[in-house]
Design a protein around this nucleic acid. Sequence first.
DNA 1: CGGAAGGTTGAGTAAAATCAAGCGCTGTGG
DNA 2: CCACAGCGCTTGATTTTACTCAACCTTCCG
Lengths: 235, 235
Amino acid sequence: MHRNGIDAARLGAARCSSCAIRDLVLFGDLRDQDFDLIHIPIDELRFQPGATLYSAGDEGGSLYTIRGGLVKLVQFLPNGTQRIVRLLRRGAVAGLEVLVGKPYEHTAVVLQEAETCRLPRAVVERLSKETPRLHARLMERWYQSLHQADEWLTELSTGSARRRLARLFLKLAADAPNEPVLLSGREDLGAMLGVGMETASRTIAEFKRAGLVVEQAPNVFVCDLSALEAVVLDG
Amino acid sequence: MHRNGIDAARLGAARCSSCAIRDLVLFGDLRDQDFDLIHIPIDELRFQPGATLYSAGDEGGSLYTIRGGLVKLVQFLPNGTQRIVRLLRRGAVAGLEVLVGKPYEHTAVVLQEAETCRLPRAVVERLSKETPRLHARLMERWYQSLHQADEWLTELSTGSARRRLARLFLKLAADAPNEPVLLSGREDLGAMLGVGMETASRTIAEFKRAGLVVEQAPNVFVCDLSALEAVVLDG
DNA sequence: CGGAAGGTTGAGTAAAATCAAGCGCTGTGG
DNA sequence: CCACAGCGCTTGATTTTACTCAACCTTCCG
């Protein structure tokens, strides 16, 4: 089911050559002449929190470059529980699997208002045939995803709940220290760390009591990074 | 440290055009003329159990196509414990990360005698520039790795040790039912499931008592697949 | 024969799941 | 304006699970 129609706001056709975050996005080092090859417009879409970019099992029509905001990739287990396998932020690409002809593997749900560029599969395939520059970019994106997947396993699914939570905070704080870390509810937190939501809640509470984090507003955390480092190491 | 010199037996230069598993390997649909582009020989290497293809942090010189056997990719945590993040079998590629200029992310250790083709980075890059056919193959390999990483997280790092073990047996038995499943020791088993080795041992013992598996010889298991399915579902 | 490595098993402890109750918002309708 | 239902979160009590430390048992091999 495509909820794009109701959840997404179309901002207009993207003009990649004047993209503000050109150095980050998939099409970043294409040239104007490359774009002459395609005549399908690339839509720029804005999604509100809770909106779904696509659902697991859907036939993949498009990739999405995340220009801003936060998107979770969720995988459902047969038994009904769900697990968040990755978080996508500015510069990441969602839905790479459509390039090998597979349906979407995850459900992509927006956590923080997200701006995206929707790249129809045909466009990427066409450009990919013609311009080797795009290949390097594509491989980087595959690599980023794989790297994050491995990290997720070793850092967020190993050790006690305390350690996992500490590592999550550090990871989220990494690219913007001094900025508070935004989360999206205890349920999601549990699904990221592979623990129950009660355990997530209790562990957060414990961190707050110990002064490791301060919850400024619901789901907005100021972190004591060096203290969190200590938790990761000493337990 | 390169242990290849002592651990690997060089079988000779590979002739891809007459490869026995041509439809599986990375260079499977290249043509003779493609190979004219390179003059670096591709070595065919055989590794004994325990041998290391490469170590995490090494500057990546080569990719390895796994032609047979079994290889584990291990990631070490700062605290010293290790976690197996993936298993590579026939047709898989190890060390893709060198294609984006990164050092190896994991240590690749042979579990069952492995036959490999070592593809120097320069060869893959050169061929990749010239022949678009290789791109599709490369993307498939990235996809396979990413897919397996996600599966590993949701299936082998979620739920009780019983469920995880059952899912592991099912996964290993999947592509050759009726064949016994080969494992490589309780320590590795724990590192795959993210549990201690004692827990792995106890859980195996429990499965044996319940008749879910029979250990024909050390680390050789005959599995009752439907009974294992039941464990995954009902706990 | 003795030693080492891998495996098993037990007892005690720690951690997390589970079940359940209660709290504090927010939005809705009387 | 207040009552109340609903949701997300917290917290407690209990049970289950896995970790830890330790002993012991094989098997293999010098």
